[in-house]
Amino acid sequence: MLTAGIALLLFCVMSSGAQAASGEFEYTRADGMGHVTLVDPGNECRTLSTGNGAKDISNRTDTVASIYKFDDCRADGFIATVAARGGTWPPSPTLTVAHAVKFG
C-alpha cells in the first residue's frame, strides 16, 4: 500500500512539472522581420527568432515566462519575468534584446 502511494505521489509531481503553458506568447523579431507567435509553448528553454532575439513581448499564456539574454537560459543571462495572462516586456524602451524564453 505504501509503495502504491509513493508511486501515485511521484506520478502527480512529475505530471505537473511537464505540462506546457497554454495560450500564446508573441514577440516582435529584433531584426524587424515581423512578429512571431508561439502557441501552447513547452516548458523547455526556447531560442527566440533563431538567435536574432526579440523585443515587444506579450505573454498571453497561463504561465509566467522568464526571458534571457542568452540562447541557453542560463542564470547569468536572466533579464526579467513576464507575467502570465497579458504581461508585456519591456515596460519602457530599452536596447536590451531577449534571446530565449522559459515558462514555469
Rank of each mutant, 00 (worst) to 15 (best):
M1I: 08
L2P: 06
T3N: 07
G5A: 07
A7L: 12
A7H: 04
L8R: 12
L8A: 15
L9K: 11
L9A: 15
L10R: 07
L10F: 13
F11W: 08
C12E: 14
S16W: 09
S16T: 13
G17H: 13
G17S: 11
A18Y: 01
Q19Y: 11
A21I: 03
A21L: 01
A21F: 01
S22E: 15
F25T: 10
F25L: 02
E26M: 14
Y27L: 02
T28D: 14
A30D: 04
D31S: 02
M33C: 04
G34Q: 00
H35S: 12
H35G: 07
H35W: 05
V36T: 10
T37S: 09
T37D: 01
V39C: 00
V39W: 03
V39D: 08
D40V: 05
P41I: 00
P41A: 02
G42F: 03
T47C: 09
T50M: 08
T50R: 08
G51K: 00
N52E: 10
A54L: 00
K55H: 12
S58F: 10
S58G: 13
T63E: 15
V64K: 14
V64C: 11
A65F: 02
I67Y: 03
Y68L: 09
R74Y: 15
R74T: 15
G77Q: 05
F78M: 03
T81R: 15
A83H: 09
A83W: 11
A83D: 13
A83F: 12
A83L: 13
R85C: 08
G87V: 13
T88F: 05
P90V: 00
S92G: 06
T94H: 04
T94P: 10
V97I: 08
H99W: 03
H99S: 05
K102M: 15
K102Y: 01
F103H: 07
G104A: 11
